[in-house]
Design a protein around this nucleic acid. Structure first.
Length: 279
DNA sequence: CCTTAGACCTGGAGGC
DNA sequence: TGCCTCCAGGTCTAAG
């Protein structure tokens, strides 16, 4: 589901709601949700801990509790909800896989129809970047570390398609299928272009486009195509700005070609054959 | 090392 | 209405 801008909106909302709150009760009902320890151990450890800090790296949410770092990846459909009681609609309730009662009486629910999302808990005595879930990530897409020179150095040795490289979280963390298409359209590059064929100027354009597009999307609440929401049911607005992603058959803004859909690395990929050069 | 197909899950949309 | 196929903001693995 979410890429960096959507995760950032979820994070900001959770920070506003949860900062300083303490977990007083925890139930994890999906056994695979906590994949670095037993669910019952995660429940036990979380009870009594207070939300102190909120961070994001790529698509990972990081809750800094008083003793542990609690990390959550929403994958395709994971969502947090906050309410005073379990939703009554059984169709919603059956997809709640964890619930945490707070010291203000409310509940934090984790909801995930496809059960792809995962959580981990690590002692905060270790630095963040040492945690197994985070240690292979490249720089966050919105950080100044992700710049043309750095990307150029990474892509020079690779012969895969440039879109595949942008989706590789060890190169840059936070870009997913929607924004990869939008970034490459903005940079004027065909997603199938061979990484090692790109020059420094191409990499500069990719990074500048990534920063501009993703920052814009953060401000507009992210992209809601099917189900993304934050803040208990707010959709994002950025889908109205999408120029190629899911625009198959629509006239490109250049007015000279229709957007086409192809497959790159098994993922649906949208591009304008006129505006995007293959290198 | 790299690339690719399949697995993990559920539900919505569209064809017949 | 039902049944079937395809599709989905992601990532991991096994196999070649």
């Amino acid at each position: 589901m979410p890429e960096a801008p959507e995760v950032q909106n979820v994070l900001s909302w959770l920070e506003k709601e949860l900062k300083g709150k303490t977990i007083v009760e925890a139930h994890i009902t999906h056994p695979k949700l906590s994949d670095n320890m037993d669910p019952s151990e995660m429940e036990k450890r979380l009870v009594g801990q207070t939300f102190e800090g909120f961070q994001r790296h790529g698509k990972y949410l990081i809750f800094r509790m008083d003793r542990d770092d609690w990390i959550s990846h929403l994958r395709m459909e994971g969502k947090f909800l906050i309410d005073t009681a379990m939703p009554e609609d059984p169709k919603t309730a059956r997809h709640i896989h964890a619930q945490f009662r707070l010291n203000d009486g409310r509940w934090l629910f984790y909801y995930d129809t496809r059960k792809f999302g995962r959580m981990q808990l690590y002692s905060n005595k270790e630095p963040l970047e040492k945690h197994e879930a985070l240690k292979n990530l490249g720089p966050d897409v919105l950080s100044p570390e992700f710049n043309g020179e750095w990307l150029y150095k990474k892509l020079q040795k690779k012969k895969c398609a440039v879109k595949t490289a942008l989706l590789d979280q060890s190169i840059v963390a936070g870009i997913g299928n929607i924004y990869a298409d939008e970034i490459l359209y903005d940079a004027g590059l065909d997603p199938r272009s061979v990484c090692s064929h790109l020059d420094l100027e191409d990499c500069d354009r990719i990074c500048a486009a990534a920063h501009r597009i993703l920052q814009d999307s953060v401000r507009q609440g992210g992209t809601t195509i099917k189900s993304f929401e934050f803040g208990n049911h707010q959709p994002g607005q950025f889908q109205e700005q999408l120029k190629v992603h899911q625009q198959e058959g629509n006239l490109c803004r250049c007015g000279e070609a229709e957007i086409v859909r192809i497959k790159v690395g098994q993922r649906s990929t949208y591009l304008c054959p006129k505006c995007q050069k293959r290198k």
